[in-house]
Nucleic acid binder design. Structure first.
Lengths: 270, 270
DNA sequence: CAGTGGTCTAGACCACGAT
DNA sequence: TCGTGGTCTAGACCACTGA
């Protein structure tokens, strides 16, 4: 099936332009997407077809498509074709700490924060899973030590996991606890109803506030593998620190797939 | 100056591996960065030198470097070389709504939120600038109309700008106001001391709370130009809605350079 | 001017998916 | 089997930077 949408491509390429040919071709295809002539999940013309339409070599055509892939606008499947990606993932989870960290969830309802995220999208709680669990004691990274109010290099308890929701991995997480907090069920692979926060409160610490720090970057190759990220998808680095009064009792670090989450915060005027 | 760091590259490439040669080469260079053998702003060996070290053609070498550039790990300069990028921009601004939206800043001190961000990094307030200002009335995009509690397609006032801090563009912003709110100085290019929020309160609306929605993606080409983004740098889509009681009185939309900002939130346990 | 990265050609061989 | 995208070679010409 040859798409005839991009007609007479040669006429629309300016070889004298400063803008490289491959970018001009990418511009034209992007335009078709933005104008709705190519919709989400539509198949782009094959590389052979684009070579014909634009009168350029395969290398140049592939570079144009590579641009669009790096922008997250197009996804390629070997042996199949290239397809337009939807601009926002309709199934993205909403991460709403104002709600997800509310005490009633973990204390009364036994729900973990990720359950709350998933429930808000109507996802089956059964699809909230974890794997690659690792429990160990390590020297805290400097940023974690700082947040926990410990001297650099202090040993802390760490639980690492990969979290799933709705059949997709969503985040790689590390929970860091000071050694005197990491006792009992907090050292188990599964912390039970209400999760880590419920267990911390069981110890007598009343959680009073949380801080969250977000930054954004492109993923490392192992994060691409573990989170099954497509090209052109960034990740969010999240640091969440839990306080019992003035004392930081937990530092939670997550690398979150940027196309599977949106973040929602509420600020009261002060 | 030829770097001799990556010695006998050929011996470290496995041509029978499933992993393509260009990715193997990228892996080796990335490893040198991660292990600290190549530090921030260090120059990579030239393409010619890498061709010699790995015994591969320029196309393959360039592809390896292209991978690293797309990951935001390396920056190239035509006629000069390729350089290691620092992992986090030390000069990144901290966006801390809990503080930056505090009323005393705009009401008592006449500071706009971006001033607060910049001041927190010790930046000269003089470097907080705006340009590309556009004032108009437009049909609100659906997401904006929804947040403002208006019917789809309702006409609103819009102020678009590009914001600068510390000599770099940091965000492309649109401020949307319902027409009955957009009066007086709120329709001017410069809203005066304390900015939009101060002028809204001048009208008798007491701002009581804000919501912020964040999502992340790779930039469009015009965003790359306007924000002077390097390859491999994502952007953050931010929607901030300001409420006077139950009434949403402003929707602020920003596209923020992902390498020039970190985000900091505080949540009180409920 | 020499050295650097940026673009483009014209091929080759391969792995994968659908038929 | 055929059409698809993925990798790689071996060259050419160009634009920019710095000495």
């Amino acid at each position: 099936m040859t798409s005839g949408r991009i007609v007479d491509g040669t006429a629309r390429i300016d070889p004298t332009s400063d803008r490289p040919v491959y970018k001009q071709i990418a511009d034209l295809i992007r335009q078709e997407i933005d104008r709705g002539q190519l919709e989400a999940d539509d198949k782009l013309p094959s590389e052979t077809e684009l070579m014909r339409q634009f009168g350029k070599t395969r290398t140049t055509i592939r570079r144009a498509i590579g641009e669009l892939a790096a922008e997250g606008r197009v996804r390629t499947e070997r042996g199949v074709g290239a397809f337009v990606k939807p601009s926002v993932l309709p199934e993205a989870l909403v991460r709403e700490p104002y709600d997800r960290l509310a005490r009633h969830h973990y204390r009364d309802e036994g729900q973990s924060p990720l359950y709350v995220d998933a429930a808000s999208r109507g996802l089956n709680p059964e699809t909230v899973q974890q794997d690659h669990v690792e429990l160990d004691e390590v020297r805290a990274p400097d940023d974690v030590a700082g947040r926990l109010g410990l001297e650099p290099g202090a040993v802390v308890f760490r639980r690492r996991r990969r979290m799933w929701a709705g059949g997709m991995p969503t985040q790689l997480t590390s929970t860091y606890l000071p050694l005197d907090v990491a006792v009992g069920a907090l050292r188990a692979a599964s912390t039970g109803p209400g999760g880590t926060h419920a267990r911390i409160e069981d110890l007598g610490y009343e959680l009073t506030s949380f801080t969250e720090n977000l930054s954004v970057r492109m993923p490392r190759p192992y994060e691409v593998r573990e989170l099954r990220l497509e090209p052109g998808v960034p990740v969010v680095d999240l640091y969440q620190t839990a306080y019992a009064g003035e004392r930081p009792v937990e530092c939670f670090v997550a690398v979150i797939a940027g196309d599977r989450y949106v973040f929602k915060y509420r600020i009261d005027a002060g």
